[in-house]
Simulated scan of single mutants.
Amino acid sequence: MTTMLDFQGVTKSFGDGEGRVDVLKSIQLSVKSGELVCITGPSGSGKSTMLSLAGALLSPSSGTIKINGKDLSKLDEKARSDVRLNQIGFIFQSAHLLPYLKVEDQLLYIAKLAKMERKQAKERTAELLDSLGMSHRAKQYPVNLSGGEKQRVAIARAWMINPDLILADEPTASLDAKRAREVVETLAKEVKAKDKAAVMITHDQRMFDLCDRVIVIEDGKITTEHA
């Protein structure tokens, strides 16, 4: 198995002097291909900061973060942007679909940003929508989709550029229990099938059995880890 995400002694602080807040404290975490890892913990514990660091949206105050062996601290902003676009897929609490684009166009837009060839992009879109049971909704606008369908489109969009790592921030928070489980089952299945890695923040303990590992973070530190 390949290590897709690697945190080594990662700290993150905001502010200076007496106003400094240490949000993350010496985090050690490795996520391998084929793994869906859940991160949970109380509000304000550092979960979202951790996900932002993993997504190359923030830089650590100290320590190293690697995506598929690539040290983010050694990259300039353009290279970091390329990593975000080509190696990381994001899934948010709300699907964040563009209301004026049909389902298939949500995916094609990502392909255009990544400069994917048009024919390849169309084939990739059809493949993903079929695998997620959304082919019949390809011509629909987001307003016509259920919450679960929107999140499945968001998952398809995250996979569009075949990223090494998927980062999901409370992807089931706005869904009922049945649809929430369907979304996480879909994510877990895709991670295994594509031999990629995913990290999901959630407070929903009913989803823990679908994850390979559950990591609890409190006060900026990993306090518990269990399979």
Rank of each mutant, 00 (worst) to 15 (best):
D219T: 12
A227S: 15
S26D: 15
D169V: 08
K66M: 07
V37S: 00
E123V: 05
T186V: 08
G133S: 06
V21G: 09
F208G: 05
F7D: 03
E18Q: 15
S135R: 13
G220N: 08
I88N: 00
E170Y: 11
S81D: 13
S131N: 10
R124S: 04
S131Y: 03
N86Q: 11
R137V: 01
S43Q: 09
V10I: 14
A227P: 15
L132E: 08
Q151W: 01
D6F: 00
L57M: 14
H203C: 13
S73L: 13
D71S: 08
I88D: 02
L98T: 13
A198R: 00
A177K: 13
D164K: 15
E170T: 12
V183I: 15
H226P: 00
E182W: 00
A95V: 02
I67H: 01
R84Q: 13
Q8Y: 09
S43W: 06
I65V: 13
M200S: 11
L51E: 05
E170K: 10
L98Q: 10
A188N: 09
A158M: 02
I222C: 06
Q205M: 15
S62I: 02
L165V: 11
I65F: 07
T2A: 14
T202K: 03
L129Q: 06
K74G: 14
E149S: 06
S146M: 05
D105H: 15
L210F: 11
P171W: 00
Q106R: 12
K102A: 13
V153H: 05
G147W: 03
D22G: 07
I161M: 05
R80I: 07
R20G: 09
